[in-house]
Amino acid sequence: MKQFRNMAYPYVVWIAIMIVLPMLLIVMYAFTKKGNDVTTFRFTLENFTYFFSDPIFIDVLERSLVIAVLTTVICILLGYPVAYIIANANPKAKTMLVLLITLPMWINMLVRTYAWMGILQDDGVINGILGYFGIAPIKMLHTSFAVVLGMVYNFIPFMILQIYTSLTKMDKSLLDAANDLGANKLQRFLKVTLPLSLPGVISGITLVFLPAVSSFFIPKLLGGGQYVLIGNVIESQFLTSGNWNFGSAISLIMAIIIMLSMYIAKRVDKDTSAKTGGAK
């Protein structure tokens, strides 16, 4: 079967050039100053000290993390019940509901986010409905509320699907056993269903938190031009101010934060599955 082995080699060359090299470029630019090229390469931490010494950037980083955590928490609180209801529906309703949840995901994120602009505007659909009831228009577009709403809207299907899969994989006889042993409905949920679905919640968290931290078009469209998250800073460094070195350093900082949180999530996942007897 040696003949087939050679078929993998061209791709190894391709990923070295198209995946590894660009990543190395980010690291290289992050640790050098503008104007340096390969021949005058000089290591510096200036980009990082600049970022952490400027309160504006610390604010942006903090805001991005707060918004991402808030989005993730709301996605769990709203997504869990949805997944639970779907998992306990009859088979026909189940396939229908899963289709209904996944269908919007196939439609371009930009298109769906753009639509929210019209809905949330000062004279938009929601304020129009409120107006019928004599409620004064509320400013919604270009606020944190709009940004969080846009993120929850775009990322919650990932959470629902992850929790749903872990709920359907669950052994239903465990609930009967708990019932026989005298557990009431609440106890059965808290002691059996919830721990067994935690792996789904955790993989949902990584799928929501990661795009939420780095998102830059949702804050731009729904938060307005003044609403800056870390993704927007990176975008402007590359596309407007042209400071690749600083932009690379910021994306490296962001990537490290994300990797750390993924690592923690994986550890928690391992701990909980160890506690629940390795249930997957």
């Binding site: 198209m18 090299l21 660009p22 990543m23 470029l25 980010i26 630019y29 990661l210 795009p211 931290v213 780095s214 830059f216 993704g231 990176i234 975008e235 590359f238 690749w244 932009g247 690379s248 994306s251 962001m254 990537a255 994300i258 993924m262």
Partner: peptide, 15 residues
């Protein structure tokens, strides 16, 4: 797949 898309994007841009 795991990296935020914007990181992949700027890597390619510089490349």
């Amino acid at each position: 797949i795991m990296n935020p898309e914007i990181v992949t994007a700027i890597g390619l841009l510089m490349f």
